[in-house]
């Protein structure tokens, strides 16, 4: 194959990675932006989404699309409820103290991971894609499902954007982010906003995982990479900036995909991490960040 088609294939793989990463990272970014909580367990909510997707898919007989749709609705919901409960029972009791919440979410990471290991087991299990037709380009065939992943991520991100900028909930959320004490003085139930945001963040990660699991398989240790990459993206994009997060996700996702295809996935991670180091040195607020860290 010539370089051109090869590059096209790599870019498509990159776009899929970017789409999934953007969803996951926006979840992390929202939580940090509004609550100032560094959620180390974010990757585990991603993993939980994938494992739940497998479980729902295995519940439903017949066409794989039924199980997939069920998973797409229920898995993020369950992840969101677990996250909201973790916020209410743990993070809130710590008064959102920055250091304490990091330790608490590390604990949460292990609780979720080990619970999944004890119940779901150590195997990697595939989920069948809801449809699997291939588009035949002149040089290679490509799964339509992967195009669907890209499209679904774009639709979901637009949905989050509209929610944040056009709705009442979004207004309440942004007000809590800017000044939580004043939000409280204006009747906003900041506790509820926080539980909702933590749930939404986890839900987005789980949603990304449901989308990716027909490509990648569900495994109890799969949360590590998305967590690392999400942090990279959130830092490069600028802490708390949703737009920056999306741009950085596209940048990192695309380069991750392309470098993985041409060289190796390890090199892609090395370069991404190096990029974070440079961003932190030369532009510590990130590409779109305003406040200093």
């Amino acid at each position: 194959m010539d370089l051109g088609p090869y590059l096209l294939l790599a870019s498509l793989e990159g776009a899929v990675a970017a789409a999934v990463l953007a969803l996951t990272a926006v979840g992390l970014s929202l939580v940090f932006g509004v609550m100032r909580v560094v959620n180390v367990a974010h990757g585990e909510f991603f993993m939980l989404g994938a494992v739940l997707a497998w479980w729902f898919a295995s519940l439903v007989a017949g066409h794989p699309a039924f199980g997939f749709v069920l998973a797409l609705i229920c898995a993020p919901l369950i992840a969101a409820v677990i996250a909201a409960a973790a916020d209410y029972f743990v993070l809130k009791r710590l008064n959102y103290d920055p250091e304490a919440t990091i330790v608490a979410t590390i604990g949460l990471l292990y609780i979720i991971q080990q619970t999944v290991l004890m119940t779901y087991g150590p195997d990697a299990r595939p989920v069948e894609a809801p449809f699997n037709a291939r588009i035949y380009l002149p040089w290679f065939g490509y799964s339509t499902y992967k195009f669907f992943v890209i499209g679904a991520a774009i639709v979901l991100l637009i949905g989050v954007w509209i929610m944040l900028t056009k709705t009442r909930i979004g207004l309440v959320l942004r007000a809590s982010q800017l000044d939580s004490e004043m939000a409280l003085a204006f009747g906003i139930k900041v506790d509820q906003v926080y539980a909702m945001v933590f749930g939404l963040g986890a839900g987005l990660a789980a949603m990304a995982a449901v989308l990716v699991v027909p490509i990648q398989q569900a495994h109890y240790l799969m949360g590590g990479d998305p967590l690392l990459l999400s942090f990279i993206v959130v830092i490069i994009g600028g802490l708390g900036s949703i737009a920056g997060t999306v741009v950085a996700a596209i940048l990192i996702g695309m380069s991750d995909g392309i470098i993985s295809v041409f060289f190796s996935p390890t090199l892609a991670k090395i370069i991404a991490t190096l990029l974070v180091a440079f961003v932190l040195i030369f532009r510590p607020t990130g590409l779109f960040g305003k406040r200093s860290i």
Binding site: L171, V172, R174, L178, F186
Partner: peptide
């Protein structure tokens, strides 16, 4: 109602949105 020292507006929100927050209280 509270008008705090240093104003403490929701700085990145528009004037209309700041007023909306006030209206939402009741």
């Amino acid at each position: 109602a509270y008008v705090p020292q240093g104003r403490r507006l929701f700085s990145e929100l528009t004037v209309a949105e700041n007023i909306e927050i006030g209206l939402m209280v009741r």
